[in-house]
Simulated scan of single mutants.
Amino acid sequence: MTDIFTGVGAALITLFTDTGEVDVDATTAHAARLVDEGITAVVVGGSTGEAAALTSGERADLVRSIKSAVSVPVISGTGAASGPQAAAQTRDSVAAGADAVLVLSPHRVANPKAYYDTVAKELNGVPMLAYHFPLMTQPGLPLEKLRELPIVGVKDSSGDVRRLLATMDAFDGAIYSGSAPLTLYCSTLGLPGMILGIANAAPADAAAAWGGDVAAQRRIAALDTQAMGEFPAGIKAVTAQAFGTSTVARLGF
């Protein structure tokens, strides 16, 4: 199975104007800057990008613009309470040119197969990653169901090393981690890559940690801890410190 990308992908923040509109140009410029600093994929409209506060059309606009500005895979984050809602988001993102989709599992659904099967009808050949993030949608992805899903891989943002290792044993597809403190560890394990929110603020260090730099690993872990307070204020604050980007958020306002 071919990996969608290798190395460190950025779970991109979405930048907004002072009046709360999506700033497509600024978000695109930020994505391009990250790629210039060693990021090898961009996830648009995922949880770090305040997905719940974006319309499907806004997400598609971001995908279209960023796709035109970078040479790395652009992955669209989709996912909703129901399969038809997630499928509609996915259809819009695929039409906008997404190279893959990252689909959050539904909340309080023990067997997500019907949900992912519904989304798969809109892929038109585009690969799908399932997204395990139990902090956001309980219970996440059941290990015993992974092989039944129409996916090429998963993103695991649990931060649970035992769960990560169990996924490697239970699933043959690509596994990407969303946990910055595990970057060097995951590289050593032979995972294809990471999808990290902290890459917004420290792209070069994130790439260096993946390459085996222990000092860089310690720096991104510390910065990730700093950013893990109020969301999305924390990640937007450390990114603004690094690059002067807007700290305006939609979630919670």
Rank of each mutant, 00 (worst) to 15 (best):
F5D: 00
T6F: 00
V8F: 07
T14N: 02
T14P: 04
F16S: 05
D18W: 10
T19K: 14
H30S: 02
V35T: 14
V35W: 04
E37L: 15
I39P: 02
T40V: 10
G45D: 12
T48F: 05
T55H: 13
G57K: 14
L62F: 04
S65I: 01
I66G: 04
K67W: 02
K67C: 07
K67R: 13
K67D: 10
V72N: 03
S76C: 14
A81I: 12
Q85Y: 09
A86L: 03
A87I: 10
A88M: 12
Q89N: 09
T90K: 07
T90L: 14
D92N: 14
D92S: 15
D92C: 05
D99L: 10
D99Q: 12
S105R: 01
P106M: 01
H107Q: 15
R108N: 13
V109R: 05
V109G: 05
N111F: 13
K113S: 15
T118Y: 05
V119H: 03
K121N: 11
E122I: 02
L123I: 09
V126Y: 06
Y131N: 00
P150S: 08
I151D: 05
V154T: 14
S158E: 08
D160C: 08
L165K: 09
T167M: 15
A170V: 08
A170I: 08
A170F: 00
G173H: 06
G178Q: 04
L182W: 02
T183I: 07
L184R: 11
L184Q: 12
G190A: 13
G190Q: 06
P192G: 10
G197V: 05
N200S: 13
A201H: 09
P203F: 01
A204C: 10
G211Q: 09
G212C: 10
Q217R: 07
A221F: 08
T225F: 12
A227I: 12
M228H: 11
G229P: 06
P232D: 00
A237S: 13
T239V: 11
Q241D: 15
S246R: 09
S246H: 10
T247L: 10
T247E: 15
L251P: 03
G252A: 04
